[in-house]
Design a binder for these strands. Structure first.
Length: 376
RNA sequence: GGGGAGAUACCAAAGUGGCCAACUGGGGCGGACUGUAACUCCGCUGACUUUCGUCUUCGUAGGUUCGAAUCCUGCUCUCCCCA
């Protein structure tokens, strides 16, 4: 997996790059739609590719392991064959579930004991078996198994947590070396910087992971409850330490504004459930600001969903019709909203890339951040 | 014609002397959502008021009572059964 840095923006840390994988190239900065259970909720693979223009999607180790089970995915010949997406796939390791399922798991040196949220059955994730699972899923990018502490974690806890994450990372690397891809394409491990909201921990973490030769580096444990300012500050601490010639992935972020701010600070890759989840819940992101489609004011607005939008749905359906679908709880409403939001997110990062290459990113970003924060 | 049941807020439906401006659900109106336990969750929903609070409400007109959505009487309307 190669990364080519195409262009560094003027008076900004923003970069335009090209990440080459065995399943195709990824132009960065990029947004990666989240497909936890192997499916980007409500979206056909064809629309992901042709309409939304996604270049890489996510899957989740924890969810796929519980259902359908890794044996099934192996039998299918890997997740690409199973879900019909032939582009690159990144899998999260389940580290985030250590955070989000906090009530039903226990951490130890060995790993994390989980109870399934589906049936309560007990399972153990270790750095080793999480690598094995991701090998079997066939992810192009495999995430290290980490602990993601909450944004308000105390220093002592955050420090211990980070040290555990670092030891787990070393075990992930070892397991990667001991194992090989099963389906003939290359798989790369991305280490993850933790350290909660403490600059000194973030710095330590970043310096630790760059000792490990990797095709990319991730920043985790942000947008988990801490103020946005803190998130940006942590990015500012970490990015300068990370190697320039490798992609940087900010995990789980975020709002359109978050993404532009992070690109400005040197981040290349993003993922977030926001476009799909908020879409299902009736919220649209556009280049002019956000819209809550449940609001009465759209009831008789027969103009296109987004006249600036790049998706088929933006021009084919009206705001009033979409509102009707969402208010009526019609599943097509959730699909249209998700498709629009994802297309918008992909447009946003592509436009950012263009602006970086043209040398106009900083000004453009300044204007966009104001517009994006508006409520329509 | 005879017998029975019932009328509560936008709808449905609890409440049958004071804890009732009135349970609950729906609908309506807002809000939240960041490596997805989420097509989910949270508010508000008689009027005026920032809050405290005040005022007007339970078909309608009277009455009993310190006090009535709740008890009594008349009236109006609706539904069901039998002819």
């Amino acid at each position: 997996m190669d990364f080519i840095l195409k262009q560094q923006a003027n008076n900004s840390e923003a970069r335009a790059g090209l990440l080459k994988t065995d399943h195709g190239n990824i132009e960065t900065p990029i947004f990666m739609p989240v497909g936890t259970a192997g499916s980007v909720k409500g979206i056909h693979v064809r629309d992901l590719k042709e309409d939304i223009k996604a270049q890489i999607i996510l899957g989740n180790t924890y969810h796929l392991y519980l259902r359908p089970g890794i044996e099934i995915i192996e039998q299918a010949g890997g997740l690409h064959k199973f879900n019909g997406w032939d582009g690159p796939i990144l899998t999260d390791s389940g580290g985030y579930q250590v955070f989000s399922l906090g009530d039903i798991r226990k951490l130890s040196e060995e790993g994390a004991k989980f109870q399934s949220h589906i049936d309560g059955s007990r399972h153990l994730f270790t750095p080793e078996n999480v690598i094995d699972i991701q090998r079997k899923i066939g992810a192009d990018i495999i995430m290290a198994f980490d602990e993601c502490p909450p944004g308000d974690a105390e220093f002592d806890y955050a420090k211990k947590s980070l040290e555990l994450t670092q030891r787990w990372l070393d075990r992930c690397v070892e397991q990667m070396e001991k194992t090989s891809p099963l389906y003939g394409h290359q798989q790369s491990l991305f280490p993850i910087v933790q350290g909660a909201s403490f600059p000194e921990l973030r710095e330590t973490a970043a310096k630790h992971i760059i000792e490990i030769p990797s095709d990319g580096y991730a920043i985790g444990g942000l947008s988990v409850g801490e103020p946005e300012k803190v998130m940006y500050a942590m990015i500012d601490v970490v990015c300068p330490i990370l190697p320039k010639n490798k992609p940087r992935y900010l995990m789980g972020v975020g709002t359109p504004v978050n993404i532009l701010e992070a690109i400005d600070r040197g981040i290349d890759m993003f993922d977030c459930v926001m476009p799909t989840r908020n879409g299902r819940n009736g919220m649209l992101f556009t280049s002019e600001g956000t819209m809550n489609m449940r609001n009465r004011k759209w009831a008789d607005d027969f103009s296109p969903i987004d006249s600036n939008g790049t998706s088929f749905v933006d021009h084919h359906y009206s705001k009033a019709f979409l509102r009707h679908l969402i208010v009526s709880d019609e599943m097509l409403g959730a699909q249209i909203a998700s498709q629009h939001n994802l297309a918008f997110y992909l447009w946003l990062v592509k436009e950012a890339r263009t602006q970086i290459i043209n040398g106009t990113f900083k000004d453009w970003k300044g204007e966009m951040v104001v517009k994006l924060a508006q409520r329509l």
